[in-house]
Design a protein around this nucleic acid. Structure first.
Lengths: 192, 192
DNA sequence: ACCGGATTTAGCACTTGGTACTAATATGAG
DNA sequence: CTCATATTAGTACCAAGTGCTAAATCCGGT
């Protein structure tokens, strides 16, 4: 009997974790014990009642929706000098990789580099006109990608070239050349 | 008074849409009417009670977690012939555009094209090795982007080239050339 | 065999946020 | 003024609980 209780409470926790919408009644039936026993178990484990669990899940998912727009820039920009250079870091998680092989999907590396290229341009409007990319080495979940962007002028008016090199540790994993379109000339207003 | 009711019911709907966790009591207070009135309004509008709304949100979000891998591909693939060609559509919403100017962020167009390029390759492992892109015309929220991919062999072993052209209506908005790496030779196993 | 603590079950009153239904009032337009 | 529409009130009931008390079981040790 000593084991029964522990065992049951442990299973109960994990059961509820993967399916929070079970009532005490469901659980009582499942374990073949009385509803009261389930209640006691929940008390001891500090597991809230069904209604609270539901609200938690709901609130969390609503919050998620609201916090999505942070996606405006991919990666954290940690250093920037407009129209010159910029650096951002991006932590690759399991959400960014193919389930099959654990390798980061290319568009995330592109997104980091591209949004960095947009950010480094000192203009109201900066658009990517064209780009050329090279995926040098696969990146995996848990790795931190550091992207460095450098701006150089293009011959044509209202254009700038941004070169981005992304590395994990010391190793380059991605490079991209972005041809950016802008509404105003490249600034270069000299000092003061 | 004719207007009062309609107006209140309309506001009530939209209020609950963006915040499903309001009780009838909250709403009654908010509109300065009795709880019963709110109940009647909900009846007429066919809006379920708080607990049901919560459960819906919760279930949907739990389902989402399970079905997230669908984000493995960006855009809906509507036609595919492995190692030959594929077509996908992607509806641009306000979540995909810069707030400032309403223009779709480049990485979404890239993501659609790139994941289509990955999908069209008939191999366990397909990775983008390099690519070259051209953003021809800005895309805005509400537009539907159709991407068409065509595969052609590369001279080198275990490589394929995928050309993607994305259009809105008749107008091309994006083109990309993807050099794909694969583990096995391009199949081409002839007819049986 | 018997005792005692742990475990389990039962029962009751009460809570929230409702449903379902009935009945009484406004209120306003013709 | 009157009649339909709209609103409010009140009752009984439900699900899924909490909180509390009390009884029944079980199980091991001596």
């Amino acid at each position: 009997m000593k084991l029964q209780k522990r065992e049951r409470q442990a299973r109960l926790s994990s059961l509820l974790e993967e399916n929070p919408l079970l009532t005490d009644g469901d659980l009582a039936e499942y374990f073949g014990v009385s509803v009261q026993t389930i209640r006691l178990d929940r008390m001891e484990k500090g597991i809230p009642e069904l209604r609270e669990r539901l609200k938690d899940v709901a609130v969390r998912s609503l919050d998620d929706v609201k916090s999505l727009p942070i996606d405006e820039v991919i990666g954290d920009i940690i250093d920037i000098e407009l129209d010159k250079r910029a650096v951002s870091v991006f932590d690759v998680t399991k959400d960014h990789v193919f389930q099959r092989n654990g390798i980061a999907r290319g568009h995330h590396l592109f997104a980091q580099a591209n949004s960095l290229a947009v950010a480094v341009i000192d203009d109201e409007l900066a658009l990517t006109a064209a780009s050329s990319l090279s995926f040098i080495k696969p990146v995996r979940a848990g790795e931190r990608v550091v992207a460095k962007a450098a701006v150089r002028p293009d011959g044509r008016p209202r254009r700038s070239i941004v070169e981005v090199i992304s590395t994990v540790g010391d190793e380059p994993v991605f490079t991209g050349t972005f041809e950016m379109y802008r509404t105003h000339e490249s600034g270069k207003e000299g000092q003061s």
